[in-house]
Design a protein around this nucleic acid. Sequence first.
DNA 1: GCCTAACCGAGACGGTACGTCACGTCTTTTA
DNA 2: TAAAAGACGTGACGTACCGTCTCGGTTAGGC
Lengths: 209, 209, 209, 209
Amino acid sequence: MTLADSRPRTQGPARGRPRSEAVEHAILEGVMKLLEEGVPLAELSIERIARTAGVGKATIYRRWNGKEELFVDVMRAAEPPDPELPGTSMRDDLVVLLEALRRRGLMNRTSAILHNVYAQMKSSPRIWKAYHINVVNPRRELGKEVLRRGQRNGELHADIDLDLANDLFTGPMLLRAMMRPDDELPEGLAEQIVDSVLAGLRPVSSPQP
Amino acid sequence: MTLADSRPRTQGPARGRPRSEAVEHAILEGVMKLLEEGVPLAELSIERIARTAGVGKATIYRRWNGKEELFVDVMRAAEPPDPELPGTSMRDDLVVLLEALRRRGLMNRTSAILHNVYAQMKSSPRIWKAYHINVVNPRRELGKEVLRRGQRNGELHADIDLDLANDLFTGPMLLRAMMRPDDELPEGLAEQIVDSVLAGLRPVSSPQP
Amino acid sequence: MTLADSRPRTQGPARGRPRSEAVEHAILEGVMKLLEEGVPLAELSIERIARTAGVGKATIYRRWNGKEELFVDVMRAAEPPDPELPGTSMRDDLVVLLEALRRRGLMNRTSAILHNVYAQMKSSPRIWKAYHINVVNPRRELGKEVLRRGQRNGELHADIDLDLANDLFTGPMLLRAMMRPDDELPEGLAEQIVDSVLAGLRPVSSPQP
Amino acid sequence: MTLADSRPRTQGPARGRPRSEAVEHAILEGVMKLLEEGVPLAELSIERIARTAGVGKATIYRRWNGKEELFVDVMRAAEPPDPELPGTSMRDDLVVLLEALRRRGLMNRTSAILHNVYAQMKSSPRIWKAYHINVVNPRRELGKEVLRRGQRNGELHADIDLDLANDLFTGPMLLRAMMRPDDELPEGLAEQIVDSVLAGLRPVSSPQP
DNA sequence: GCCTAACCGAGACGGTACGTCACGTCTTTTA
DNA sequence: TAAAAGACGTGACGTACCGTCTCGGTTAGGC
């Protein structure tokens, strides 16, 4: 379900000319195209999007209540599909998940969109929530499911807080990918993080105060 | 050094009427006031800021080149001071650092500013860089310094990558504080994270595949 | 013949469902209703008319090519019927004609419509012409016929320009009714005008320069 | 005094940059130019006027509250100057006044403007009134002054209603000029009207019923 | 009693203009 | 020269209509 239908459609049975899916697609593609061309998100006016998509402004407002709502759908469209998990072990699955996160941070399209669209949305709690429900939470659940499987086969303590554990893996990678985009996101980073978190940083010997 | 002086001041020796510091302060305070009143950052126009501060628009443009530059200075003014470290152990210092991060995520003023101003800035690399140099990096250095002390007194392996280690502690807390602001940021969270990362998540016994 | 049929009806023998007269009536009534409610003519959009009449926009465009054409029919529907002439004398007939003009200028419905619709139409020569052919000219002919009868029975010189004569009577009344609507249009005005024009304004004695 | 200053100017002493007279002139000239080019008044959008005058929309709205107010000033600018009266006799003065009316109805610029702008204004009573106070009434007073002089030197009965008398002369000419613009407005029309009204239409001999 | 063309309501569509607001620059007066 | 005020050209905002175009669903003839 997209947000595109958020505007009121008075009744049940379809009346009048139905909305064109082609138009919907053209709009989303138009936004993508502009973002890929390097247009800063701040310069993405509805007016310009409409011009690019060859569409009337009202046609956009008919579907979305404003820029933010539109952007939620753009994000969903830009979001790469869930990675395929090897299933060989929890550790390997986690590496694949983080690796997907790393790559997403590098991809031009998603990066341009995520890093900025994402930002804009925070100003509008309604949208932020929609994005979380539709995009973020499913991903988080995927991660927790991997951890749960790890608990079942003994790779992870059974009594650990899964949300916290998930954040321990995801947080460092996101921190790198989102706050230090210019920094290197080296190939082995996902493995490093997963293994470090699993092993812990404490030295074998106890500290000498 | 603030960014406030970014506009050209034609010559060396001060000529004509000097810029009023009071004016500068009034502008920054005006932005703060508006943010605390809950005005969404997106609605913070220069025009409105000038009106609130009882100042001409040109007076703002004379000091900053635009909204973003102004916001960098606002952020710096809003940033809480570095926390005081107990110095009893690396572990305790880390807990205090993360605890500061947690509290910052809860503070009304900083939260309103950070969560949003921060966002806006990503669209402007120049500003993003300025913010990092002036605000983020010093904090990161502080964390790395704590870790370095930990290495010296044996609380941390000597050959660990300090940047990565720092992210392992900071990432989870920031993830919580910035991406899930509605979620609880419970009191003990800082301790949980520090101890979990130090100890690792792997069970004592080896996994049964 | 109304203008309502101005749109092409492809062939000769009526095929398919015939146009509903009820719909036609509903549209005209809708416009009247809105005008009487005091809606300024400038705010009478086709969209609103359709809404008021409970009719699709296309149903209006099927009958009239635009707002102006519709308004011509509205005017015709609103136009009061030709007054009944007493026939006792040219002078009495003229008084009755002007009296009708005076009353029309006072009538709520017609006034609202005439004073404004009339105005709008000047911008569109096509419509202006249609209005003249269908509404104005017949009235003018009626006046000239009265004058012609006056010539025949000696109330009026035989060699006078009937168009000019007609304007001499009609002009002053229309000037009052249309350009100074707030001014009084007193009861005896028609008689005053007719008698003044018939008698002339020149004093009996010759002027002393 | 123009209407151009109808928007609020908070205080007495001029503060801030004063409004440019050149801009004001450019706007009025722009409208004239468009009208002379034959652009129908209905197509005279503020947007287009601004484009033509090389001016921002807001600059127009700063001076006038809307199209109608602007048009009042346009009309005043387009209005030809009062004709010079010979003063030889009331009759000659009246001929000159009507002649001016006739010529105004023929002039391209004024005609295009008057015939249509005038029309538009009727929809807005506020503007209609402003136009009357500023343009129509002065003209009417001029006519009445001529008639008054006629009364003083015996060309006109002393007890005649000057408003009515004025309408008797003006009405027929305006009727021709405004409602039948396609008809001829022949050279001698002014004289014909003045002399006919002064002499009256009634035949010398009494009617034979 | 079907068939089928045209009508009907609703409303989507690409546009244009509305009147407002903010941008960043400029031109005033006052200090 | 700075400062407050506010005009300036520009251009986006979200709304309302324009006139056209589908939709599903009636009506009428003519077969």
